Amino acid sequence: MEKNSNLPQELLEYNILIRLPYKSLVCFKCVCKHWHALFNDPIFLSHHLSNFIKNHNTCHNLLLRLSFPTIFGDGWDNYKLFLLSATDDNYSPVQTLMPKFNMLSTKFQICGHCNGILCLSTEYWSRSKEILLYNPATREFRCLPDSNMRLRPSSIALSVGMGYDLVTDDYKVMRIWRGDMYLFRTNCVEEYSLSTDAWTMLNNTNAGHFIFDADAFAMFFKRTYYWWAFSREDRSSVILALNMEDEVFQRVPLPQNIDISERDGRSLVVWNDSISLICCTCDGLATSIDIWVMDGSGAEGSWTRKRSIKDLTHEPKPLVFWKGNELLMEMSCGKIKSYDVDDGKIEDVVIKGIPNWHSSQAVNYAASAVSLKGGDYLI
């Protein structure tokens, strides 16, 4: 102990403490005044974040958005967040506190997540669609300001996506507006920057060439947003890539003879640090799933089929890869199944207190100390 207490301060802080998970930092704030100040220091937190990003693939906790019946039993409109630890073999979820939307809506979407930060929005089409950023670990949240664009009364906020710009160390939110509800005349795209707390319109995105749905945002990966859309030219279903640098939508080549028009039968996720496209095909009474992996990224990528799952009796909704090589799927019967890519086994996932899942979303999650720069805190 005597020897350990004489460790050089820089070695202790930037080679040992920097590797601790965020929850440990919170506990160790009480050790001494110096550590309390250190764990609030922007420089230390910046190094902690860099280490977090470097090793984020080693954490496989799951953050779930699940829906429950309303009080009157007329629908599954009561949405809640739960955290599920990968080390908990009993699958005992812990409910996560949620900030309140101004319109008191209980329906929301997870519109992206980066470095422990969630982007949440109310789950309906409207001009007043609310968006907020939330760090469940620190309980800090920030409601995004209204758009400063001049929009038609019929304009609708279609889809929202979130990303992290490593070059500028800034969190950004992309929002697509449909300019005319009935004529599909114009799509407007604007970007929110956490560093400036303001929206900026992107003028040269060529978004008008495509038709977007309410849940068009698919994922963010390596400074590129990915979206589901329809081409105005041939009405085909496409995947679009929007890079933070050029800010122009580009079509991502698809595997041959692949249909991505069914919303619940498609998913774009990260698997082993690569983009994976999961597609479901229904043939009579049985359903099959193909898992494709992209070599490269964006419009320059190409696809290789890695796995196929045959003869599923219920239609699946692919959710996320968990614990490395386990694909979670929400079945049409309300149950969750796990497919192990390594051995091909399919097993039921039974979570305590939640017999069935409905309208679920799932993301890999690790707690972080990222600040939302002046946000509010849940008590």
Rank of each mutant, 00 (worst) to 15 (best):
M244L: 15
T168G: 00
R142D: 08
E191F: 04
D246W: 02
R150I: 09
D169I: 01
W228V: 00
N243G: 13
A216D: 08
N206Q: 09
L151A: 01
E233M: 07
M181T: 08
S237M: 09
E247V: 07
V173C: 02
Y182F: 14
L183H: 14
V167K: 13
E233C: 08
D170N: 11
A218P: 10
L240K: 05
G179K: 07
M162R: 00
L144G: 06
E191Y: 00
I156E: 11
F249E: 06
T196H: 11
T205Y: 05
T196A: 02
M244Y: 00
V238K: 15
G208R: 06
S147A: 04
F212S: 08
N204A: 10
G179E: 10
F249Y: 09
L151T: 08
D215P: 02
D234A: 03
Q250M: 14
A157R: 02
F221C: 10
S155F: 01
D234I: 04
A218H: 07
I156V: 15
T224W: 05
T186N: 11
G163E: 02
M149L: 15
A229V: 11
R223C: 09
A198N: 12
Y171V: 02
A216L: 06
T168C: 01
N206M: 01
D165S: 04
D165H: 03
K172M: 07
W227L: 11
A216Y: 03
D165K: 03
D246F: 05
D234Y: 11
L242V: 01
E190G: 01
M174Y: 00
S147T: 13
E245S: 04
N187G: 04
I211W: 11
D234G: 04
Y182W: 13
T224G: 03
L158D: 08
K172S: 04
V189P: 04
G179M: 07
G161M: 01
Y171F: 12
G163N: 03
L166D: 15
M219S: 11
Y164M: 05
V160F: 03
V160M: 04
N187M: 08
M201Y: 05
M201Q: 14
K172H: 04
C188I: 14
I176N: 10
N206I: 01
P145G: 09
A229L: 12
S159E: 03
V252N: 10
W227C: 07
L166P: 01
A216I: 02
E233N: 12
T200H: 10
M244N: 08
S159G: 05
N148Y: 00
H209M: 10
S195L: 14
Y192F: 14
